[in-house]
Design a protein around this nucleic acid. Structure first.
Lengths: 136, 136
DNA sequence: AATTGAAATGCAACAGGATTGCAAATTTAC
DNA sequence: GTAAATTTGCAATCCTGTTGCATTTCAATT
């Protein structure tokens, strides 16, 4: 992995403010996808809207991607190195109905779907639900 | 298609109340998936919670299925005839980023995914985003 | 037809997450 | 050092989903 959070941010031309470094560190230390609320709680006394905007910035710069796992709370996970948030980087996600954890299935790439005539593909959100290995 | 909404409801052993018939008619007349709010608006002065519970009943009886298309509002669409809401009936959905319509891609069935060791499949939500045929 | 019990409805209120406006603070450029 | 731009914090709001409870409707039974 790359160096510090600050370095990673600068590399993407994002001002490495304290908040951003903290949020990025959390995302980097978390193996699974996490929600805004979870980030908030891990940080302690931070402002939700600031974290919200930080995550927005990260998404716009392909540092993280968002996952709608159906729980109502959007989750976020770090992009892989070299990710350009294009079709080739799209992968499925797994939501464990027991522990509530959402995992990137980076090996389960999403291939360009066959669509009806006239339909145009842009992106996709594929969430598989079940019980994860830890919960069995 | 089967006869009246009332007949369809009775066939599923659901009391065909006025509300239920109205909601079912809307769902049957709508080619695309619609949200609770849209149903509410099409009906006029009805109570949200009643429609909500009606939709819940319909889901429990495999009359409709719900789709989380990432807009924040859950949408609902009529099940096909013979649907038993099992794996074999799972299909992808298409969300148009221009008009906001969500369409069932009934031909695009979801096949049992290959998961990492120890992971157990239950269900899946696959939403493809792009521009629909009408919006090009 | 009246009584009773169950189911359905309407109303109100609330919960949770996402999002915005605005002012204060911080950073950057000149 | 000052002005402009960016970022942050706070408060408020929107939107959707959901529940509690009293009332109404319906169906079965006497």
């Amino acid at each position: 992995m790359l160096g510090s959070a600050a370095e990673l941010l600068e590399q993407k031309n994002i001002k490495p403010t304290a908040m951003r470094q903290l949020v990025l560190d959390i995302l980097r230390n978390n193996p699974q996808a996490i929600s805004l609320l979870e980030i908030e709680q891990q940080l302690g006394h931070v402002d939700r809207s600031t974290v919200f905007r930080t995550l927005k910035t990260f998404q716009e710069n392909c540092i993280i991607h968002k996952i709608d796992d159906g729980t109502g709370a959007t989750k976020f996970a770090l992009c892989s190195e070299g990710c350009s948030c294009n079709l080739g980087d799209l992968h499925a996600h797994f939501y464990c109905t027991k522990c509530g954890q959402t995992t990137c299935l980076k090996d389960h790439l999403i291939e360009q779907p066959v669509l009806p005539e006239g339909f145009n593909f842009e992106s996709a959100n594929y969430v598989i639900k079940g019980i994860c290995a830890d919960c069995r």
